[in-house]
């Protein structure tokens, strides 16, 4: 099971919109994706799960993936969490 660490780029932390963007991206991959923080593990495809981590800015998230496209998922998610969330912290999600 490949793993990698990503630091929360969003200056506020992992709030609802940030969590929603992670879910939106994670759902595009077939592999199982979990995010671990301070001993709690959340499914990256669940908004409330991610929000319940209450992860602050720059805190390390451990990404654990398993499945066919796991490496691609890691690359994309780390990029979103560290760079994407930092550059556009309040980008609306959901309705396109």
């Amino acid at each position: 099971m490949p793993q990698r660490t990503a630091r929360v780029g969003d200056p506020v932390g992992l709030h609802l919109r940030a969590a929603s963007r992670i879910v939106q991206l994670a759902k595009q991959f077939d592999c199982e994706i979990h995010i671990e923080y301070e001993g709690a593990q959340a499914n990256a495809k669940s908004i409330l799960g991610l929000a319940s981590l209450v992860a602050r800015h720059q805190e390390p998230l451990q990404l654990i993936v398993e499945g066919p496209d796991e490496e691609a998922a890691l690359d994309a998610l780390v990029d979103l969490i560290e760079v994407g969330l930092a550059s556009e912290p309040n980008k609306p999600t959901g309705q396109s």
Binding site: R17, S20, T93, Q95, S96
Partner: peptide, 12 residues
């Protein structure tokens, strides 16, 4: 392929 509103912060 469509992303439905999941958090409800943005009102359509």
């Amino acid at each position: 392929d469509k992303e439905y509103d999941r958090h409800g912060l943005d009102r359509e």
